[in-house]
Write a protein that binds this DNA or RNA. Structure first.
Lengths: 110, 110
DNA sequence: ACATTAGTTAGATAATTAGCTAAATATAAA
DNA sequence: TTTATATTTAGCTAATTATCTAACTAATGT
């Protein structure tokens, strides 16, 4: 889970996930969306892969990357959970700070 | 939002948020939970503060840090949203990959 | 066989980050 | 007013990260 958060710390990598969300894409295809060199992108892919957020499938001379949504899901929900925050019911029940500063989005029935 | 993700990239800082979740705490009180020096903790508090995740209130000679849950909420939900992921209904609807690899934790009704 | 294409690995560098000790600041207590 | 406490700021170092170019590997096309 630490690896996931480390991976998410880079805006470019988050963007990669967004792109992959629509459909699996090759390394080169993804790289076209960024103003950095291919080796740099390759390094980012490695980080995402090691975090388990994407997986690679070699097809001829291209490599297709695919988003592993479940890993992202588990990390984010897991973290939210560790904070006692039930994302499903989002109203971020906050014991000590109920009146002070919390839940600006009236999402449930408050 | 980038600052938030950068802040969340450190396990210690995530732990600080978890501790603050229960109640606001002073810098020293928080620091006791970690095996690093106070100046190091102070630096972490600064990062969290700059991300908007905590705020500080000076009280005599101590500083009380308080979690700003809404900021975390907005960042996480915002990011999930940018991925087209509706956390509320968590089943991570994934256009191209529906059958391939998704949602390993039986969270809803599957 | 040779050239082209897709992508990586190697190796270097610059920037950022996490940690330390020592010193400074500010409040409170004696 | 001197001392003790809580926390930060300054200044340093070591580790990590993001980036680059050049060189390599593997697959395909001619």
């Amino acid at each position: 889970m630490n690896r996931v958060f480390k991976a998410l710390a880079d805006p470019g990598r988050r963007r990669v996930l967004q792109l992959l969300r629509k459909r699996p894409m090759s390394a080169g295809e993804l790289a076209e969306h960024f103003p950095v060199s291919k080796p740099t992108m390759s390094a980012h892919f490695t980080v995402l892969q090691e975090a388990g957020l994407i997986d690679a499938e070699k097809n001829g001379r291209t490599i297709i990357y695919r988003l592993r949504m479940s890993v992202l899901e588990d990390a984010l929900l897991g973290f939210a959970d560790s904070l006692g925050w039930d994302m499903k019911n989002t109203e971020a029940d906050n014991p000590a700070q109920l009146s002070t500063e919390t839940s600006r989005t009236p999402r449930k029935g408050n």
